[in-house]
């Protein structure tokens, strides 16, 4: 049979067998679906702001509005201390990564359920779906970062040398969001409870991270335990780098980095283990 296509002449063999247990990630396959990954990111962004008048402005509006509310309630009424920085700035520096984290989680978790039509009709590496959501949210994150820069200028705060740690923190933030997101996505498609509990759970989680208050309010002996939440290292690191309210919290970052890597690796593994049933239970 003449093969008139430009494909590599090597035979392309797929074996389909039942799988149980753990499976490794097929990187080669993921690379082949690179285009789909980027189109899905692009689709998520495009669709989210379709037919809205301020469009991407919503990416900025959400943390800004939260900042205003928090400034009034926690800054002025309750009088939560902010390590010497203006409370609004103090909150916003935390809200930018937090919004990215929280939205990645809620949307990523829902991604498989909302796209179940696609999952039951076509094959593609399932990992792509929740990861594309995170990719789309990352674009929002960078837009908010620009606003944050403008705010810093406005308040006349100069970032310090700690900013070179920011890329590391952003990676940490992303893989912990991805890791937790993959766990929850794989669980949510079988147990819809996860979906229902999600928005509420994320809200609770926010109070487990130093978004509205500084870590210095947590008793010393609990601090390392507290740092098991990778968002603690990320948020405090952001504050150290951009506001200079504290020294770079290397201990928090180290603990958080280990936790986020473990979360990500276990999340990918659990997802791979469960992905073969997605089409059946979705």
């Amino acid at each position: 049979m003449p093969d008139q296509k430009t494909h590599a002449p090597k035979p392309y063999v797929t074996v389909i067998e039942p799988h149980t247990g753990w499976r490794s990630v097929d990187w080669k396959e993921l690379r082949e679906y690179k285009d789909l990954f980027f189109f899905l990111i692009w689709r998520n962004i495009k669709v989210r702001y379709a037919q809205s008048s301020i469009g991407v402005g919503w990416a900025v509006l959400q943390p800004l509005a939260s900042m205003l509310v928090f400034t009034v309630i926690f800054g002025n009424l309750v009088g939560v201390e902010s390590d010497g920085a203006a409370y609004g700035l103090f909150a916003f520096v935390a809200l930018v990564p937090w919004t990215y984290f929280a939205n990645s989680l809620t949307e990523g978790t829902a991604s498989m359920v909302t796209n179940s039509g696609m999952i039951s009709k076509i094959y593609f590496p399932r990992l792509i779906m929740p990861l594309a959501i995170i990719g789309a949210r990352m674009v929002d994150f960078f837009i908010s970062m620009v606003i944050l820069g403008i705010l810093l200028l406005f308040y006349g705060v100069m970032p310090n040398s700690g900013v070179i740690v920011l890329p590391l923190l952003i990676v940490m933030l992303t893989i912990s969001a991805a890791g937790l997101g993959l766990w929850l996505t794989a669980l949510a498609i079988q147990y819809r409870d996860i979906n229902y509990g999600m928005s509420f759970g994320v809200q609770l989680l926010m109070y487990a991270a130093p978004v509205v208050y500084p870590t210095s309010m947590i008793p010393e002996r609990f601090q390392l335990l507290y740092a098991l939440n990778p968002m603690v290292g990320v948020i405090e690191g952001f504050r150290a780098a951009l506001l200079g309210t504290r020294d770079m919290p290397w201990d928090f970052i180290a603990i958080g980095a280990v936790v986020s890597v473990v979360l990500f690796a276990s999340g990918v593994m659990y997802f791979r283990r469960k992905e073969h049933v997605f089409a059946d239970v979705a």
């Binding site: 035979p11 392309y12 063999v13 797929t14 074996v15 389909i16 067998e17 039942p18 799988h19 999952i119 039951s120 009709k121 076509i122 094959y123 073969h276 049933v277 089409a279 059946d280």
Partner: peptide, 13 residues
Amino acid sequence: RITEPTTGRIEIH
């Protein structure tokens, strides 16, 4: 490959 078989094997070239 949308759903996995419970038993058996498929080979696709």
